[in-house]
């Protein structure tokens, strides 16, 4: 087991999260089973107080989870210096079999917690708290994903072996090797980029005709094709290297940490496009606001990745 100050900090926070989220989980189940808005019983008044506590715990966990996600990537990046063969966070994440799953769980949980938070905002906007049972049930389910993430994270850090030679990102994100991600390179670049822009156009159409189903579907497509096209196509223009496809090196200072900005806009845009639209449809609320936020962040993402390609072409007169 490798212990660095960063890993110790993450593991300690995991312990705290597990403790507090377990309290929130038990209280959420109580709220789901026994909540009766009209009751004036001792139990109902207790539940009303406990609902504040649940909201507070989950809000604070979410507030810490967002920077902690970046801190996890940063930690993996720093570990690449001591793990033989790893050149960036990609090598460290892939040094353990389930590293990629851990990353996916982390992303999924950010979306789930964000979804809960949006539902919570809609709930406390009304003095009747109409969605308290729904949000309690939702957290009751999301809790298991959260626990899975924490367990995976603990296993991940305890499984890291600094004496084992691992593959660097150049090998992992390459068509020439048999890594878990090499299947991506079977797809043609022009096709992926076309799907990426097509999903964005579909999103714009969904926004203009205010069709939430089209908008939601286009965001799901956009999220998938944005990540794949970033790995296969756009990253090469950021690195100005036709063979380098790593989505983690974008976070490094050599590239001005542009990856943080790209991922933030992509995840915020698709979060509002997916979760915001679902919540709006369920609660008949701020659908236009969610769509506007989504379209803004997604457009910024499209503009930036496209700008890298255009600027490269203008500077060099050739495509990669």
């Amino acid at each position: 087991m490798t212990l660095t100050p960063e890993i110790i900090a993450i593991l300690m926070l995991d312990g705290l999260f597990l403790f507090f989220s377990s309290i929130a989980f038990v209280l959420s189940l109580k709220l789901y089973w026994y909540w009766d808005r009209d009751a004036t019983s001792l139990l109902q008044y207790r539940l009303e107080k406990e609902s504040y506590l649940v909201g507070l715990i989950i809000k604070y966990i979410f507030m810490l989870k967002v920077p902690l996600f970046l801190f996890f990537i940063y930690t993996c990046d720093t570990l690449s210096g001591i793990i033989t063969g790893a050149m960036c966070a990609a090598g460290v994440v892939n040094s353990v079999d389930f590293g990629l799953f851990l990353l996916l769980f982390k992303l999924l949980n950010l979306y789930l917690f964000g979804f809960w938070l949006l539902l919570h905002v809609r709930d406390v906007e009304s003095e009747l708290q109409p969605y308290i049972r729904q949000k309690s049930l939702f957290f009751g389910i999301a809790f298991f994903f959260f626990v899975a993430e924490i367990v995976l994270e603990i296993l991940f850090f305890t499984s890291l072996n600094i004496s084992k030679i691992v593959s660097c990102c150049g090998t992992l994100f390459s068509a020439s090797t048999q890594s878990s991600l090499s299947f991506l390179f079977l797809m043609e670049n022009w096709m992926i980029v076309s799907f990426f822009y097509a999903s964005f156009v579909l999103m714009l159409v969904g926004f203009m005709v205010k069709n939430s189903a089209v908008y939601l579907f286009s965001n799901l497509l956009f999220l998938f094709f944005a990540i794949v096209s970033l790995i296969l196509f756009f990253s090469t223009y950021v690195y100005e290297l036709p063979t380098h496809h790593c989505p983690f090196c974008l976070l490094q200072s050599d590239y001005y940490g542009v990856g943080y900005f790209l991922y933030a806009t992509l995840f915020l845009g698709t979060f509002y496009g997916i979760c915001g639209v679902v919540i709006s449809t369920l609660t008949q609320g701020f659908i236009l606001r969610a769509m506007r936020l989504s379209i803004f962040f997604n457009s910024v993402y499209v503009l930036i990745v496209s700008a890298y390609v255009v600027v490269y072409f203008l500077k060099n007169g050739v495509w990669l």
Binding site: R37, T40, S41, L42, Y45, E48, Y52, V124, E127, Q129
Partner: peptide, 21 residues
Amino acid sequence: KPTTGDVVVDGKRISKLMEPF
């Protein structure tokens, strides 16, 4: 808030309102 029971003021169940309301 009461431990049990209801408080209604000007038609509003104030005992059931969350703090901001």
